[in-house]
Design a protein around this nucleic acid. Structure first.
Lengths: 334, 334
DNA sequence: CTCTGGGCTGTAAGCGCTTCCACTGCCCGC
DNA sequence: GCGGGCAGTGGAAGCGCTTACAGCCCAGAG
């Protein structure tokens, strides 16, 4: 961009750069005649103010950073979509950073931090020590899909209640031997498993520890091959991708889903509705999650004090075929 | 971020800011003793150079912009993932912008342009006039999933060959009455439809004009309800999401897929493998698409002249159940 | 012993903008 | 007729950095 500068505009318009700036931003009084001269000069030179100059002078970037563990799969895309939409409305740009098996993450994140006014961090993407360091430096931060870290704000979707409802539903199906696929991550998933274990405990059912695996179809497939050796009645999965993998594993082992084993997911991604059998799952308001994070961060940047509290968005139990033969709801529309 | 500045570091270390800069960047000679003093001062003050200052002085942002029509669905997430990964390796940040039904796109894009050293633009996201304006301003640009615009570079995946192969396969299945779902977009999709029409024509088959619809499940569903009234043998869809929607529509109309009507997609998203029936489609190398774009843009930014040419990545025909009863390949692994 | 050339360091000029402050007229009210 | 106030404008000081240029000092050469 060999763009012209405010000096050239000023010279062409025959005014000072201060006047050009005032005319363009609408701050301070400028006569109609001057404004017109400036407008013409700007047009002739195709002048656009340098963001760098503006930001340096204003002392702000008008940009947010958002840190993901990964961008693959439908989950993050949806959240990001909701985030970017709100950020754009608020006049802020969005810088993304994916950390997935990458070296030098702390340095990269710190570099990102110098480019933005605030940061959104997903789940357990970053070590707590780094979060503390960033928060202590005064950087506004919002945590996504987990509880707030000291000095930050957070937003996640409801976990325990839906997990309990799902567990109760599965018990009503007559399932007794449970298995959990997808590890304990100190974030959303662990809250769900805790609620599930408690609910099952209330019914005199004990659950084995969850089998750790990456939150991907492949991870679920592998975990499924292990889990299904014990012939559980039902496998509850950390997310829909894992569930799809478990279903694949079941098919490979000659097991019918849900006849021989029920499977449930979490998130309600597109594939959940189209899979065979259609997946019983819990719908998360992914876009709203992103949107809420964007608004929270904007408030912090505007000067609000972080409250260390977590905003919780409601989820919805989605009963489909994979949890058992007796469907509670009629098949969905559209 | 109430960060300290290079001046404070210089004062604490008892040297000039020039020396601090040299010590930190490794440009110019600095004695070991001085280097150590600077290092200590930096550590004590937790100094990180302001990106704004650096960029303003260097005259570059070390950041790329990438413009999407939308971020929902699996397609863009994957491409973005590939992009961001390479960009990070190259030491560049990534700013994203989604334009989906949003007002003031030209202004937003121009704002984005002032924040980056180069831009990647997806398909038909931006009007040609705007592309021309940006390219003329000297902004390095790479087009994604379409042919190069003058003054840019482009990368897309192969369309005509796979489209022809798919059409030939469908003809071999005995299908004769074709329908196309998903509009003519002047980009990737139109290349496919053109190849399909030509191939079918060679076999004496004519195709009706494609039915326009958004590239979503809902769009496909609606288009399907229209298309299927004519009872075609097969519906070829612009992408997998549209295909999933058409399958939904077929089910609603009591039609068996592929028994009564075959359906094909494009992209090979995750849901394609898990849908019922599993979707015959064409796999695009989504991450590679993003990665190639990142590298091309980096070359342009480094000074390479745009060649107005398009790099084409190979695709792969994926035959599953939705195209007809007689499967050519055995069921896939994993 | 003087001269020369590095090595090392500091000074200062930008990079492109915003905005405080000072200044000039001019209109209005008394 | 005169002073106060205000619309309109310019000068200049930053914002935080990089880097060309110049200066200093000292070792080694002559």
């Amino acid at each position: 961009m060999s763009d012209s500068t405010i000096y050239e505009v000023a010279r062409l318009a025959g005014v000072s750069i201060a006047t050009v700036s005032r005319a363009l931003r609408g701050t301070g009084p400028v006569s109609a005649a001057t404004r017109e001269k400036v407008r013409q000069a700007v047009e002739q030179l195709r002048f656009t103010p340098s963001r760098l100059g503006v930001s340096l002078a204003e002392g702000r970037h008008a940009a947010d950073g958002i840190v993901f563990p990964d961008l693959s799969g439908p989950y993050f895309g949806e959240v990001l979509l909701g985030y970017e939409e709100v950020a754009a409305e608020l006049g802020r740009s969005v810088l993304i950073l994916s950390t997935r098996d990458r070296a030098g993450v702390p340095e990269t994140v710190k570099d990102l931090a110098t480019r933005v006014d605030g940061l959104v961090v997903f789940g357990q993407t970053l070590p707590d020590a780094l979060l503390t360091e960033l928060a202590d430096s005064g950087l506004p931060m919002v945590m996504l899909a987990r509880e707030a870290h000291p000095g930050t704000e957070a937003v996640r979707s409801e976990n325990a209640g839906s997990a309990e409802a799902l567990a109760v539903h599965l018990i009503a199906h007559g399932h007794r031997r449970f298995a959990l696929a997808g590890g304990h991550d100190e974030g959303d998933v662990s809250q769900r498993w805790t609620a599930v274990a408690r609910t099952l405990g209330d019914h005199g059912i004990t659950v084995p520890r969850p089998v750790e695996c990456p939150y991907t179809v492949e991870g679920g497939h592998e975990a499924g091959l292990t889990l299904l050796r014990d012939r559980p009645d039902v496998v509850m999965c950390a997310d829909d991708q894992v569930a799809l993998g478990v279903i694949l594993a079941a098919e490979e082992l000659g097991l019918n889903v849900p006849g021989d084993v029920a499977v449930t997911g979490w998130d309600d991604i597109m594939a959940a509705r189209h899979s065979r059998p259609a997946l019983t799952t819990v719908r998360q308001p992914l876009r709203e999650l992103g949107a809420a994070a964007a608004r929270l961060l904007d408030e912090l940047i505007a000067g609000a004090e972080p409250t260390d509290s977590t905003r919780v968005l409601a989820t919805e139990l989605v009963i489909r075929a994979s949890c058992g033969a007796h469907q509670v709801h009629p098949p969905e529309e559209q």
